[in-house]
Computed example of a mutant assay.
Amino acid sequence: MSYILQTNHLCKTIDGKELAADVNIHVKKGEIYGFLGPNGAGKTTVMKMITNLWKPTDGTVLIFGRKLEPTSYEVLKRMGSIIEFPTFYEHMSGIENLRLHCEYMGYYNKGCIEEALEMLDLTDAGEKPVKRWSLGMKQRLGIARAILCRPELVILDEPTNGLDPAGMKQIRDLFRMLCREYGMTFVISSHLLSEIESIADTVGVISHGRIKKEISMKEIAETNTIYIELSAEDPKKAAWVLADRMRLENFKIVDDSRIRIYDPDATAQNISKELIKNGVEIVSISRHTETLEDYFLKLTAEV
């Protein structure tokens, strides 16, 4: 499989301290890749190397199928980014800052600045000097700048810093829309598990400068089933069907109506089919899976 972004054995050492070691990440075109790790895990270090702000001590970065070099200026024109905190010319307005960015990028699409400001709910503030903006507004302006030139790849380091819960949801919805309708690919770092769980297609978990695991959210849901919970009008008859008809042994009657089935080969579909065939009325049946938080803590050995 070809990837829009790939790192091979990426390492960074500064003053004898290893900040990143043997980092291999693989980002598919058109997906939202969640780069998850606690503060100090190495997320920003890797993102600085991906965006050519820092040169690797060892290893390579491939973007759009080409090795990233110190002179890869054209490649960077196809990217948007926020690394750490977005900075601006404070005496200039938001519109002026975005216009200057378009000049840097050689992007002259009429109406793009107004559209970006509207997407981030900044239209009314666009003419005001950035020094009068709040932290959350500056963060939104940074996101507007990152997506302004319709980049193919967007690298965002903790993009929801300074935003309230409603603002965080709005930004998540925006990223999904840009991914779906414009084919943009996003790499989004965060130490907030709930934030990554609610938006990412694939997750890369980093701890102490090393990638612990790359896995799709779908795979986490499918392969980390803890149990199937069944609620039936007649739990005793349901238990008889599970044991006698389906030959299941690993289940537990929780209370007067609920049964939990822990058999790894059991599926909700097969259980429902067999219960209905034997006249058992099902109130509800659902699969309970390991959350991203459970998975993350297990990987980083914090449980």
Score class of each variant (00 low, 15 high):
177 M>R: 15
148 L>Q: 06
122 L>V: 04
116 A>M: 10
103 E>P: 05
100 L>H: 10
160 T>Y: 00
135 L>Q: 12
222 E>D: 14
155 I>S: 09
94 G>V: 03
108 Y>F: 11
106 G>L: 08
230 L>H: 14
114 E>S: 10
152 E>G: 10
119 M>R: 02
196 I>D: 04
178 L>M: 02
156 L>W: 05
145 R>A: 10
148 L>H: 04
241 V>T: 07
193 L>P: 03
155 I>D: 09
237 K>P: 08
155 I>E: 10
187 V>S: 02
121 D>Q: 01
190 S>P: 05
155 I>P: 12
124 D>L: 06
175 F>D: 01
164 D>N: 01
103 E>K: 15
135 L>R: 14
156 L>F: 09
141 L>S: 15
182 Y>H: 11
101 H>G: 04
120 L>R: 01
192 L>Y: 03
188 I>F: 00
186 F>K: 01
187 V>I: 14
182 Y>S: 05
196 I>P: 05
140 R>T: 08
217 M>L: 14
207 S>Y: 15
170 Q>F: 03
200 A>F: 05
205 V>D: 06
203 V>K: 08
110 K>Y: 11
186 F>W: 04
227 Y>V: 14
205 V>W: 04
165 P>I: 00
138 K>Y: 08
201 D>I: 04
233 E>F: 06
154 V>G: 03
137 M>Y: 11
97 N>D: 10
95 I>N: 04
127 E>I: 07
222 E>L: 13
98 L>I: 05
97 N>A: 09
96 E>Q: 15
204 G>S: 13
143 I>Q: 03
195 E>S: 00
138 K>N: 08
223 T>H: 15
224 N>S: 14
124 D>H: 07
118 E>F: 00
145 R>K: 14
146 A>L: 12
153 L>N: 15
169 K>I: 05
181 E>A: 01
211 I>C: 08
158 E>V: 09
240 W>S: 09
147 I>V: 14
128 K>C: 08
99 R>N: 12
216 S>F: 11
192 L>E: 02
190 S>T: 04
236 K>G: 06
188 I>G: 00
165 P>N: 04
188 I>S: 00
226 I>D: 12
158 E>Q: 10
120 L>T: 02
179 C>N: 03
159 P>C: 13
109 N>Q: 13
233 E>K: 11
214 E>N: 13
147 I>Y: 02
173 D>E: 14
109 N>T: 09
117 L>K: 01
112 C>T: 07
204 G>H: 05
98 L>Y: 05
101 H>W: 12
117 L>N: 02
219 E>R: 13
132 R>N: 15
113 I>A: 05
227 Y>H: 15
182 Y>N: 06
